[in-house]
C-alpha cells in the first residue's frame, strides 16, 4: 500500500502525542494566526523555530514531515511562479511583455512558500500526533457538536481505505488497457474519469457498510454516549499554552518594532 502522508496518525509515545487534543487545536489556531500576523522574515523564523521544537518533541521522523510538504509541492510551485512573474514590484530585474521579475515579487513569493510550508507542516503535526478519536473528542468538547466531529474523524479514518481502493481501481483499469501516463494534460485528466466513477461508487458502498456496522453497535449519535478516554489538561498543556501565547506575542512585537519586510 502507498504511504499516505496527510491525515494519518503516527503511533509513537511522545510529549506532543500526550498533549490534550483541545490544546493542540488551540495551538494550531494560534500558530496559523502567528503565520499571518508575521510580516517580516524574523517573525516567520520564530514560527519555524517553534515548529522545529514541536517536531523534535513529537518524535515524528523528519522524512514523514517532509512528505507532508511534498503533497502540496505542486500547488506551492504554481502559486510561486505566478507570483514571481506577475507581481507588480518597483525594483524590476527583468521584464518581457506583462511578465516581470521584481525584487518585491521574489520576496513576496518566498513569504508565500514559507507560510504554506509552515501551515501544512503544523496541520499535519496535529493529525500525526492525534488519533481521530481524540480529535473528535477535542472538537466535540470545544464546539459541542457531536455529528460534525464524528464526520471529520471518519473522513480521516477513511483516507487509507480510499487510497487503497483508488489503487485497486487504477490497476483494474490498467489491466484492461487504460493509459494514464501518456498524452497531454487534457488527455490524462480525461483518463481519470474511468477511475473516479467506480471510486465514487465504492465510496458509497463503504459508507453504507460502515453505517450498518455503526448502527449494529448501537450508534445513535451523541446522546447518552459515554467516553472511554477522558480528556484532561495537564502540566504539559499548560507549558504548551505558554509557548503558544509567547509565540503570538513575539510575532506581534516583531511586527510592531521591526516592521514589514515589504
Amino acid at each position: 500500500m502507498k504511504e499516505v502522508a496527510f491525515g494519518q496518525y503516527y503511533p509513537v509515545d511522545s510529549f506532543v502525542h500526550r498533549l490534550d487534543p483541545r490544546f493542540k487545536l488551540f495551538f494550531l489556531v494560534a500558530f496559523i494566526a502567528a503565520i499571518f500576523v508575521a510580516t517580516n522574515f524574523y517573525g516567520l523564523l520564530v514560527c519555524a523555530g517553534v515548529l522545529v521544537f514541536v517536531i523534535l518533541f513529537s518524535r515524528i521522523p523528519a522524512g514523514k514531515v517532509l512528505r507532508a510538504v511534498r503533497g502540496v509541492l505542486f500547488l506551492a510551485l504554481f502559486a510561486t511562479l505566478i507570483h514571481v512573474f506577475f507581481y507588480a514590484g518597483e525594483t524590476v530585474y527583468w521584464s518581457y511583455g506583462i511578465i516581470c521579475i521584481s525584487r518585491e515579487g521574489l520576496i513576496s513569493s518566498a513569504f508565500l512558500i514559507l507560510r504554506l510550508a509552515l501551515l501544512v507542516v503544523c496541520s499535519s503535526m496535529l493529525t500525526y500526533t492525534t488519533t481521530p478519536v481524540a480529535l473528535t473528542d477535542g472538537i466535540e468538547a470545544i464546539f459541542h457538536v457531536h455529528v460534525i466531529a464524528r464526520i471529520m474523524s471518519i473522513a480521516l479514518r477513511m483516507i487509507p481505505s480510499l487510497m487503497e481502493e483508488t489503487e485497486r481501481v487504477k490497476n483494474a483499469q490498467k489491466a484492461r488497457g487504460a493509459d494514464f501516463e501518456s498524452g497531454n494534460l487534457f488527455k490524462r485528466v480525461k483518463a481519470f474519469v474511468p477511475i473516479l466513477i467506480p471510486l465514487l461508487l465504492s465510496a458509497f458502498r463503504i459508507a453504507e457498510d460502515l453505517g450498518d456496522a455503526m448502527e449494529s453497535r448501537c450508534y445513535v449519535g451523541g446522546k447518552k454516549r459515554t467516553k472511554y478516554k477522558k480528556l484532561c489538561f495537564s502540566w504539559r498543556d499548560l507549558l504548551g499554552m505558554v509557548v503558544a501565547c509567547a509565540l503570538v506575542a513575539g510575532v506581534v512585537l516583531l511586527r510592531i518594532y521591526v516592521g514589514a519586510t515589504l
Binding site: 478519536v133 479514518r157 456496522a213 450508534y219 445513535v220 447518552k224 478516554k229
Partner: peptide, 22 residues
Amino acid sequence: DNQTVASIVEDDVAFGAENVGL
C-alpha cells in the same frame, strides 16, 4: 476494512460500549 470506526484497536472496541453509555 469497512466496519471499524476508529484507527486504534482499543478505540474501536470501545465504540459500541461507549454508544450504550457504560
